[in-house]
Design a protein around this nucleic acid. Sequence first.
DNA 1: CACATGACTGACT
DNA 2: AAGTCAGCCATGT
Length: 116
Amino acid sequence: MNTKIADQHKDFFDAVFQVVRLIPRGRVTSYGAIGAYLGAKRSARMVGWAMNASHRQEIPVPAHRVVNSSGMLTGKFHFETLTAMEEHLAAEGIEVKNDKVVNFKALFWNPTIELE
DNA sequence: CACATGACTGACT
DNA sequence: AAGTCAGCCATGT
């Protein structure tokens, strides 16, 4: 995809959600990576803020594939249950240990590179 | 309008 | 290596 989804950052939310939905099954990314792709790498918090509204989107957003820069499941507390995030990841073949994605570096999916 | 908070990150101790 | 601090910016009180 050549055109950056965030070209019109007027829809920052949709942009974030779209990128998250583009994450391949069995892969994960970070808030900062998404922010960087959207041209707001200085605002990883805004990505998290957008994700906070993801659960109320009509189209499901695989928020479980988004973790922090350390691969830790920092957003697990915002899911229906405390283990939902880990369950979803496990269902995709992603191993979670101590709230962290195992082999995170290898499973990391960088939208700026993958979507260039 | 000012202060506190947050699904973050990188640098520093 | 693990904990702390300071930027970051939109939202809520």
